[in-house]
Nucleic acid binder design. Structure first.
Length: 600
RNA sequence: CAGGGUGUAGCUCAGCUUGGUAGAGCGUCUGGUUUGGGACCAGAAGGUCGCAGGUUCAAAUCCUGUCUCCCUGACCA
């Protein structure tokens, strides 16, 4: 058994590690538990990487832990190279820390809370903005200390409404979170410079991990702040939708994606009568459209929203029936954040929920915001503002003339973009829709947390100034799952070399034969000497199960040694990504072949 | 949280309707034959049927409660 002894305490060993199946725990199974559905979940269980403990809580078995450590190491190298330094904060967080930011309210039930024996309330950290900002209050004392970027790799806790798909969404998961501190937005020490550095570091990290990913513009969400980018692993099974303009390189999450100019006019002449129809018991826009002999794209959808101000106002957002209202865009259009109206309150105010039309603005005081696509037609089907009725033949110019002349209608991009929409950057180009799994997210926080918690320092001009912050997250355990989701076939996982638990899977046929054992030791020793991590399947199994398990585990290179190959002076070599069976090669050529195959 | 489903051997599942000795396949263990893509023969171990209560002479099965886990939705690394 080779080891990684070094005589020096400063020289890092470049020797690869060698591990034998018989000495570790890799419980592969032919049949995954029936509750596993996503490929990453199924294969990580079948290949013996993880085992479930509870909903969204998993054991990371030796293979998974090796991969996680490799991902973490890549993250550390790139973060350190970008000028960040690692620290470790506790998972326990006193509830008082949330008093300033009120994020306990924003997070709500997502926050795991507990009480100690003295009745003090604690949270299990979902992220660490509060803790680190509080830490900095006592540690950042001079403008000369800026900029500063600190990170940690640590287990996070979120009581997800619905954990699922193995490591893709756990309640306990491993995350890298980084926080940067500045006094300026611009300049070498400013937030923008560090944000750009992090953007590059993330690009390096995910590239080195061997992932096919896209960096896209994103909504900041409850973390708060201004600019934000997400790093998405490109994968059809992803939960997130992103839109891409090939010509300009523009890419954004559907929550954020802008849509290019669309032609519209209030002055489209009516071409049919306004007719009322009885439409009882028709859930959903599709059944109504069918009953009215039209399609959702021939209908108007009027969503009742409420502003979140002290004295809330009603807002009606009108989009075409086949489009989705985007609340963030409505917020940007009217300059105030909104939320879906409570159904009871809306009914009490006179809205006939399910049958609302733009015409309701004549009877109720409200803000009317309309998407351009909802104006590009002469005749629409929409609600009749009375129970169980819709109208056809609605025409903006004829039926909303007063509101239009009164300037009561605001026209703005307020819907989610979708494939085929015009690009916001290049006229004539269209957006393409893709799916992705979010593995990283970077934010410009600004002063949200420093103001709430009171993190300020004296600047050069001896003026008190709130510290400007950025924060940068990577879902480490999710990255692993996303990688499997992105890279697998019917037989199992296909790991990129950089984050595979080992580089070489050495299948041993007849492991009890002395000459085989000798050949295996020599081979693995030589490979390890070149920095290659070798995994030896030394089990007393027949060849069939061994090959099946090798495919399942998915290490990049498979070598096979048997009495036959020894007799021929060969070792069989096969790449996991190749479908063909392995081919024998001269024993002396093998190490170089492995090195070539693993070269970046 | 709302809606739907589920819980019987390590895994996949049958048995439940109509109450009457706990079942199969895979896996595991033993012995033998095998040995390059999930072998064969013979044998063995392994379950208080999620938990609690109730009905009954008798409950995996019927009733009540409760918990678990999964799926669909809003949220997020």
């Amino acid at each position: 058994m080779s080891s990684t002894h070094t005589t020096s305490c400063i020289a890092k060993s470049t020797r690869g590690s060698v591990q034998r199946w018989s000495q570790t725990l890799i419980p592969t199974v032919r049949q995954a538990p029936s509750d596993a559905e996503m490929p990453s979940h199924v294969f990580m269980i079948r290949a013996g990487f993880i085992r479930q403990v509870g909903a969204g809580v998993y054991n990371y078995l030796p293979l998974a832990w090796r991969s996680l450590r490799k991902v973490s190491e890549i993250i550390r190298e790139e973060m350190d190279a970008a000028g960040a330094s690692e620290l470790l904060m506790p998972a326990f967080q006193p509830m008082e820390l949330y008093a300033g930011t009120k994020r306990d309210i924003d997070y709500g039930d997502l926050l795991f809370t507990l009480e100690d024996r003295h009745g003090r309330k604690l949270a299990l950290g979902p992220t660490h903005e509060e803790v680190i900002t509080d830490l900095m209050c006592g540690a950042l004392t001079s403008y000369k200390q800026f900029p500063l970027n600190l990170y940690q790799i640590q287990t996070k806790f979120r009581d997800e409404f619905r954990p699922r798909a193995g490591l893709l969404r756990g309640r306990e998961f491993i995350m890298k979170d980084a926080y940067s501190f500045h006094l300026d937005l611009d300049g070498d020490a400013g937030l923008n410079a560090t944000y750009d550095k992090m953007h590059r570091a993330y690009t390096n990290i995910f590239t080195r991990c061997g992932l096919d990913f896209s960096a896209v513009e994103a909504e900041a969400g409850p973390i708060g702040g201004s600019a934000s980018h997400e790093f998405m692993v490109n994968c059809e099974a992803g939960e997130d939708t992103i839109l891409v303009c090939q010509e300009s390189g523009y890419a954004a999450n559907v929550e954020k994606a802008e849509i290019g100019e669309r032609a519209w006019s209030f002055e489209v002449a009516a071409d049919s009568e306004l007719v009322k129809h009885h439409t009882p018991n028709m859930p959903g826009i599709h059944s109504v459209a069918e009953h009215l002999s039209t399609t959702p794209s021939g209908m108007l959808k009027s969503i009742v929203l409420r502003t979140t101000e002290e004295s809330p106002r009603w807002v009606i957002a009108v989009v075409r029936g086949d489009h989705e209202v985007n609340e963030s865009k409505v917020r940007d259009a009217i300059g105030c954040s909104v939320e879906l109206a409570d159904e009871g309150e809306a009914k009490a105010a006179g809205f006939v929920i399910g049958y609302v039309s733009p015409r309701v603005c004549s009877s109720i005081d409200l803000l009317l915001v309309v998407d351009p696509d909802a104006l590009a037609g002469a005749s629409w089907a929409t609600g009749a503002d009375e129970p169980d009725h819709h109208v056809t033949g609605f025409n903006w110019s004829r039926d909303m003339g007063d509101a239009i002349r009164g300037g009561k209608i605001q026209v703005a991009d307020i819907r989610n973009a979708q494939g085929g929409d015009p690009s916001p950057r290049v006229a004539g180009s269209v957006l393409q829709e893709r799916k992705g799994i979010e593995v990283g997210h970077i934010f410009k926080l600004g002063t949200k947390y420093s103001e709430a918690i009171g993190l300020d320092v004296l600047n050069k001009d001896q003026k008190k100034q709130s510290v400007i912050m950025g924060c940068y997250g990577i879902g480490v355990s999710r990255t692993l799952a996303a990688c499997v989701e992105m890279s697998h076939d019917d037989n199992g996982i296909i790991w990129p070399a950089a984050i595979a638990p080992f580089h070489v899977h050495l299948v041993v046929i007849k492991p009890n034969e002395p000459e085989v054992q000798e050949a295996v030791s020599a081979m693995s020793d030589e490979l390890a000497g070149h920095g290659i991590d070798v995994f030896i399947d030394d089990r007393a199994e027949r060849p069939g199960p061994k090959f099946k398990d090798a495919d399942l585990i998915g290490l990049p290179i498979r070598l096979t040694i048997s009495p036959k190959t020894i007799e021929q002076g060969e070792v069989e070599f096969k790449l996991r990504s190749d479908d063909a069976r392995g081919v024998g090669h001269p024993r002396e050529a093998i190490v170089q072949m492995c090195l070539d195959a693993l070269a970046p």
